[in-house]
Design a protein around this nucleic acid. Structure first.
Lengths: 104, 104
DNA sequence: CACATAGTTCGATGGTTATCATAATATCGA
DNA sequence: TCGATATTATGATAACCATCGAACTATGTG
């Protein structure tokens, strides 16, 4: 997982590779993942995975799958804290994606 | 096809329904369709379908399929002129999608 | 009318993926 | 250490979708 994370540059002004760009587009193509992003982005503090499960009606396995997709697309940061996992939105990456699309 | 086209408001400041939003996201998830959009958007004048086929290495059937997806997502306007079909990018819809994503 | 040209539709095929149940892993508290 | 909690990995299933060839429609040209 670290392999793909590295393909996006540092937190400020990330340059998206073609692969990053495609991954982000595919990640955003699933409404459920957009909902998850919205939930994560609505708070300033990292969102616990468990909190997402209370809102989204999916199994933990499915949630884990979606979170991995979002992480692979570099759209979220994933930080483990004991048993819990906290998610935060990478607004810089989202913005980089929007900037790229706007150039069409 | 007209049914879905109507769900997007007039050319200025289109309001995207949830369905529109999801359709656009799915349309953009396919790199080939993004390439097609780029080609269409790179000119100020409508792009003939045949011109796209010269660049994109897909069969006419596949091209037709992708164009339909883009049209259904309201991302392009399709105008028939005799035997030819001319495509133009709906920048207002693309921008509406970007605006919506930026609110996450 | 006969033929060519430009796209579309249909059906089939192979690949991708969303979903879940179950099992596994990891961490914390008693 | 034992059991509970949180998440992840695995394997299976079903739905979705990109692609193409072949048949079809519509339009222009001789």
């Amino acid at each position: 997982m670290a392999k793909n994370t590295k393909s996006v540059a540092a937190k400020t002004d990330p340059r998206l590779s073609e692969r990053d760009f495609e991954r982000i587009a595919r990640a955003l193509a699933e409404p459920r993942r957009v909902d998850i992003l919205k939930a994560i982005g609505s708070k300033d503090t990292p969102t616990p995975c468990a909190a997402l499960l209370e809102v989204q009606k999916v199994s933990p396995a499915t949630m884990s799958h979606h979170l991995k997709e979002l992480e692979t697309a570099c759209l979220i940061d994933v930080v483990r804290d004991g048993r819990c996992v906290n998610l935060s939105l990478r607004r810089d990456v989202l913005q980089a994606y929007l900037d790229r699309l706007a150039k069409i």
